[in-house]
């Protein structure tokens, strides 16, 4: 790939539209991770929630003939997975990570099982794609109109709304503050009369719903079918984005978009015939950047923490 083609890639509106498409599920996953993390739960089950939501969305869209109902079913499936996660961690007091692993195993197995029971094949199930929106007038703006207002899935807008809704939740609502309190110090929160179990459950349900939107988007927006393995670690990338975003919804979403951009680049670069890097290696890019981002963030945090620790030790 020559330099010129490389630059051409960045000049096309299609590339930016692709970033939007690929970033949307990551933003939902990252927000889900954020809400559960604020409640003090490392929710690894997001991946599994997305898988089951993607399947439920595809299933119900073909069953009812309506993509919107499919999305609702997906969100419902996500919330159900959230409920399951909450039941296991809050009621049964199982280790979060183990519940997460179990949820993911369950969702992966159950989705293949259901698809096979219905269709007799194990790989995919067709869904009805959502109709993309064309915003009148705004779509005529050059470049911006083409990227943001032409043939854009409504869930993309919803992802943007969700970022600020989550921000609003933690800044302006009682529930948000309670979630923060439970996450910071459960015993202290309980001592002032907050029902910690209930707050945690609600947070996990919200996270499940957000993951559900992400999953539904994958099977009804990004593609128009459910494929096994279509989530492909997006839930985990979302968790990483949340870790780097340090609990700030906007920063978290921006990092999710960054990972989406890398993903878009790795896909777009594959379409250039003169580009010699094989697609298998390009596929490692999103994971490599995620790891790199996580490491850089952790090193910065470590450096920030440690001078203070050293000073404290000297004082003592």
């Amino acid at each position: 790939m020559t330099m010129r083609e490389f630059l051409q890639l960045f000049a096309t509106p299609e590339f930016y539209a692709m970033i939007l498409q690929l970033a949307t599920p990551l933003v939902f996953a990252a927000l889900a991770a954020l809400v559960s993390n604020k409640a003090g739960v490392l929710n690894i089950g997001i991946e599994g929630a997305m898988v089951s939501a993607a399947l439920a969305a595809a299933l119900f869209s073909t069953l009812t003939g309506s993509a919107m109902l499919g999305v609702l079913a997906g969100v419902f499936a996500g919330i159900l997975m959230g409920l399951f996660f909450a039941f296991c961690t809050v009621r049964l007091r199982t280790n979060h990570i183990l519940v997460g692993i179990a949820t993911n195993i369950l969702a992966a197995g159950l989705s293949v099982f259901v698809v096979y029971a219905i269709t007799g094949n194990k790989s995919d199930y067709p869904g009805i794609a959502m109709t993309p929106w064309n915003v009148p007038l705004l779509k005529d703006i050059p470049l911006i109109g083409e990227v943001f207002f032409t043939e854009v899935n409504p869930l993309v807008y919803l992802a943007i709304v969700a970022v600020f809704a989550v921000r609003f939740l933690f800044r302006r609502t009682v529930l948000g503050v309670r979630i923060l309190a439970v996450g910071k110090n459960e015993a202290a929160a309980a001592s002032v009369g907050i029902s910690t179990d209930r707050v945690k459950t609600i947070a996990l349900l919200i996270a499940g719903g957000l993951a559900g939107f992400g999953g539904a988007y994958l099977s009804l927006g990004y593609m128009s079918s459910f494929n096994t393995g279509m989530v492909a670690g997006r839930g985990f990338i979302g968790i990483a984005a949340e870790a780097i975003g340090a609990g700030n919804p906007v920063a978290t979403a921006l990092f999710a978009v960054l990972f989406g951009a890398v993903n878009a680049f790795s896909l777009a670069a594959q379409t250039f015939p003169s580009f010699t890097i094989p697609y298998e290696l390009l596929n490692t890019l999103p994971y490599l950047t995620t790891t790199a981002g996580l490491v850089i963030y952790s090193v910065i945090r470590y450096r920030k923490l440690h001078p203070r620790l050293a000073k404290k030790e000297i004082k003592q």
């Binding site: 296991c88 009621r91 049964l92 007091r93 199982t94 280790n95 183990l98 519940v99 692993i101 179990a102 949820t103 195993i105 369950l106 992966a108 197995g109 159950l110 293949v112 099982f113 096979y116 029971a117 194990k122």
Partner: peptide, 20 residues
């Protein structure tokens, strides 16, 4: 389909690991 095993495995994992 043999994936029914994963349902069993997931449930066993949660129940065995749960403290309560």
């Amino acid at each position: 389909a043999q994936e029914v095993v994963q349902i069993i495995q997931g449930l066993i994992l949660i129940l065995v690991a749960s403290e309560a």
